[in-house]
Amino acid sequence: MSAPDIVWKDGKFGRTSRRDSWWLSPAAILIGLSVFLIYATWAAWQNGHYTYGPYISPFYSPELFGSSPHALFGPRPGWYPRYLPFSPALLILWIPGLFRLTCYYYRGAYYKSFWADPPACAVGEPRKSYWGERSFPLILQNFHRLFLRLSYIVWGFLVYDAVRAFFFPDGFGVGIGTLVLAVNVILLGGYVFGCHAFRHLIGGTFDRVSEHPFRRRIYQAVSWLNARHMKWAWASLLSVGFADIYVRLCSMGIWHDWRFL
């Protein structure tokens, strides 16, 4: 079918008749994501102050190799190239990083904020060319569910960390850090299991979902989470960053971990 002849063909960047503060949301997302990216990158390269007592920073978990008691397979292995920088976070952080990068919510958000494609709804764009997600590189966004599956595993380890945070060297206890890690896994669980791809895999794939009553029930629960996916995404992003800050500052002796029990 041929394209119709349209009057408004020479749109210019930022041109719009909108009178509201359309730039506010993309600007806030630009700042929020940038701050997180800068902090997470810095924290991942530190290779220090990522554990405190039974706590471990979620940026460094699961700690495959490392110098802390949380390391699953001991210290940095001999086969790891000497010329490559080492940090336990670098071995694991790419999984949640790529999961969030390819997340449907974040895609819509950062295309607007970082690439102005479009800057906001009904606002002129800076570029005439457009490929979308149908060709390289953005066609790779279709591998989102690969990182979803890996994220199930990472989340499982974070649940283990949260449970372990109740067990101090002197026995069972509850500290502020315990609550921080517990809230973090709840928020991360809401985000991971409210994922659009998970919603499809669990029940959306069926045209006759009534033939799968158990999956249907889960599908309805996931749909509830999915309807609030943006909120889970931001809440879990903030909590995971705060959990790292909390463990780091406790480890550095700047903050004191207050124990309830």
Partner: peptide, 15 residues
């Protein structure tokens, strides 16, 4: 129909 062109801005849902 090139569904890959959609980059999920959600503007359609908003209006």
């Amino acid at each position: 129909h090139n569904i890959g062109y959609c980059n999920i801005t959600t503007c359609c849902r908003q209006v």
